[in-house]
Design a protein around this nucleic acid. Structure first.
Length: 605
DNA sequence: ATTAGGG
DNA sequence: CCCTAAT
């Protein structure tokens, strides 16, 4: 019963990661609720020193276990490679753990077992995780483990519900095995946004895989990224239901010999368990989710008055940093914040390189104000992946990331919240979220400190900044009495991709659907926004193709161009859905596309 | 409440 | 993005 940890060999060793090894087989036992597995989690510093795990780390592990439990019985055959939408929530979690298990073996070579034992023999009891049903809420269903929903397979092919994706195989072997150390380093950097000096190929591969895995939904729409090209891929047609439009195009060849990664998207909200340690022994798999939520909400602080919020904000403008640090330090793991919290940005004041943002966190109706710090990027957004890899959201985190990498600096703004550095590759959004949340109510405050920054580098940042609650988006009153959004939220690549995928799934026009399903976490994108964006995309996709307007030399003219592959997909979707501008429609749309349209439409009916 | 389109 | 008309 022990857990070793990945070795971080570079200067950013604080950035902890972990490979997890569980020696107990009790996970397969359904009654493990009362039979907690004991884990030890340590972090290995750059110098090889072992550092005891912190609570958050433990919880992180726990979450994996939860996923495991949730998904275990669903994952009947890990050998299969077919993704299935209806099981994505649980299966991907399972896959993740499985990978972790697998990876941990070689990890032992790096960590002297004796050292480990000597240092951490105080086993840290990991309480039996509570099975969470609510984390699947985003897809509209509860208890997905036992009752895989088919609603996502919209009118569609029942074909796919039998097998599971095993991306470890794909990514671990197919993609990374052939890479040189140098290439792996490149990929690593692209994945995590930082360099690594680790020479161990295995380690690199594992780490990258893990990072990618954590960023992608392994079961929904998938893309193949080959070097500079972003391509649809096709082995999940069945799972994409009638809208498996991403599936048919021939892969485009890559230019740089970068890894060809087969990825999809991972929606953390579906994978991540919502519940934490607190009711471990009492929790069971049953019970009304809503009920539980209510209970939790009840424990929470009451919503501060507006005035309080304002006053507090004033105060924070002064002692912001200090306060935050203290907040973090004082906090334990008692800061239980639902991942579903909606963070509203209320106000922010800059404070020396950092921006203190006061957010109103609405948790199950009650709002709490949450201060957090967001480092202001002084120059352009990070070029690497991570800028686009959201913790949260679903979707094409991976694809987006790869695309971004491939396109190098295309000028897309990072997702709001994406500018956050990846603190834990294997962390779950929930944990990340907690790290930066605090509730300053009078003197009472609680939050969870980022374990990551334990030593120095207390890198506080606002995660989950992507949720400005509907009614509280930063708006500015207009002269005519109406209100207008204050800032144009530049569309992120990943957002665009999500939109594209949404359209491919639900069809253009179903904006509210897409909004609800694909943009659930982006409350600042209204269905109208989606529509507008799609309109723009459409225009762009059909405009840019033919002549290329000669003006190709002008690079980042502020509004970066949407990556061609995406535009291509847009165009294709438009063709399929017969929403092509009349003048151009005759050009290229042959019979094939129409056929597809037919099929899809019938399936839809 | 949602969607389509024009501004 | 906003606004409005139509549904």
């Amino acid at each position: 019963m022990e857990t070793e940890v990945g070795v971080e060999g570079n200067d950013e060793a604080k950035h902890k990661e972990c490979g997890i090894r569980k020696s107990s087989s009790s996970l397969s036992s359904p009654k493990q609720i009362s039979d907690p597995v004991v884990y030890k989690l340590v972090r290995v510093e750059g110098d090889g020193r072992l550092v005891p795990a912190t609570d958050d780390e433990l919880m992180e592990v726990e979450s994996l276990l939860i996923d495991d439990r949730c998904g275990k019985h669903v994952v009947a055959d890990p050998g299969q490679t077919v993704g299935c939408i209806s099981n994505e929530g649980s299966s991907s979690g399972m896959a993740q753990l499985k990978r972790l298990e697998g990876w941990s073996q070689p990890e032992n070579k790096k960590v002297d077992p004796d050292k480990l034992n000597g240092r951490l023999e105080e086993p840290v009891p990991l309480l039996a995780p509570s099975l969470s049903e609510s984390h699947l809420n985003q897809s509209g269903s509860v208890g997905e483990c036992s009752h895989p929903p088919d609603e996502l397979v919209a009118g569609g092919s029942p074909s796919s519900i039998t097998t599971k994706p095993d991306f470890s195989r794909l990514k671990g072997e197919i993609c990374l095995d052939n890479l040189s150390i140098k290439e792996l380093h490149e990929t690593f950097k692209a994945t995590f946004g930082r360099e690594t000096t680790v020479k161990d190929k295995q380690w690199l591969k594992r780490r990258i895989s893990m990072g990618l895995t954590n960023s992608c939904d392994v079961s929904t729409t998938s893309f193949i990224i080959k070097g500079n090209k972003f391509v649809k891929k096709g082995n999940e047609e069945g799972c994409n239901g009638i809208y498996g439009s991403f599936a048919k195009d021939p892969p485009i060849v890559n230019q740089k010999g970068l890894p060809t990664c087969h990825v999809g998207q991972l929606d953390y909200h579906k994978v991540v368990p919502e519940r934490r340690l607190e009711n471990h022994n009492l929790d069971d798999n049953s019970g009304s989710d809503d009920h539980q939520k209510e209970q939790r909400a009840a424990k929470r602080v009451r919503k501060p008055t507006k005035r309080y919020i304002e006053e507090l904000s004033e105060v924070e403008s002064k002692e912001s940093n200090e306060r935050l640090l203290n907040l973090a330090k004082n906090s334990g793991h008692d800061g239980l914040i639902s991942p579903k919290s909606h963070v509203r940005l209320v106000r922010h004041v800059s404070s020396g390189g950092r921006t203190v943002i006061t957010r109103l966190d609405s948790l199950g109706g009650s709002g709490i104000q949450v201060p957090c710090v967001s480092r202001v990027r002084r120059s352009r957004p990070r070029k690497n992946f991570m800028a686009l890899l959201k913790f949260n959201p679903s979707s094409m985190g991976m694809a987006a990331a790869l695309v971004e990498k491939a396109l190098d600096d295309h000028g897309f703004p990072p997702d709001d919240g994406n500018e956050n550095r990846v603190l834990k590759a294997s962390s779950t959004p929930e944990h990340v979220h907690h790290q930066f949340v605090g509730v300053p109510e009078k003197d009472k405050q609680f939050s969870v400190m980022s374990v990551v920054g334990l030593g120095n580098n207390t890198d506080l940042k606002c995660m989950n900044s992507n949720e400005d609650s509907d009614d509280n988006v930063v708006t500015v009153p207009t002269s005519k009495g109406g209100i207008r959004r204050k800032h144009h939220r530049a569309w992120t690549l990943s957002e665009v991709m999500k939109l594209v995928e949404g359209v491919s799934r639900y069809g253009a026009g179903r904006w509210s659907e897409i909004k609800r399903l694909a943009f659930a976490s982006y409350s600042y994108r209204t269905s109208v926004d989606l529509k507008d964006k799609w309109r723009n995309l459409l225009k762009a996709s059909f405009a840019q193709t033919p002549p290329d307007t000669g003006m190709n030399s002008r690079k980042n003219t502020g509004a970066m161009p949407i990556p061609t592959p995406i535009l291509l997909k847009v165009r294709e979707l438009a063709e399929m859905q017969a929403q092509v501008p009349p003048n151009l429609s005759l050009t290229k749309v042959a019979g094939s596309a129409r056929k597809i349209v037919h099929e899809k439409q019938t399936g839809f009916l």
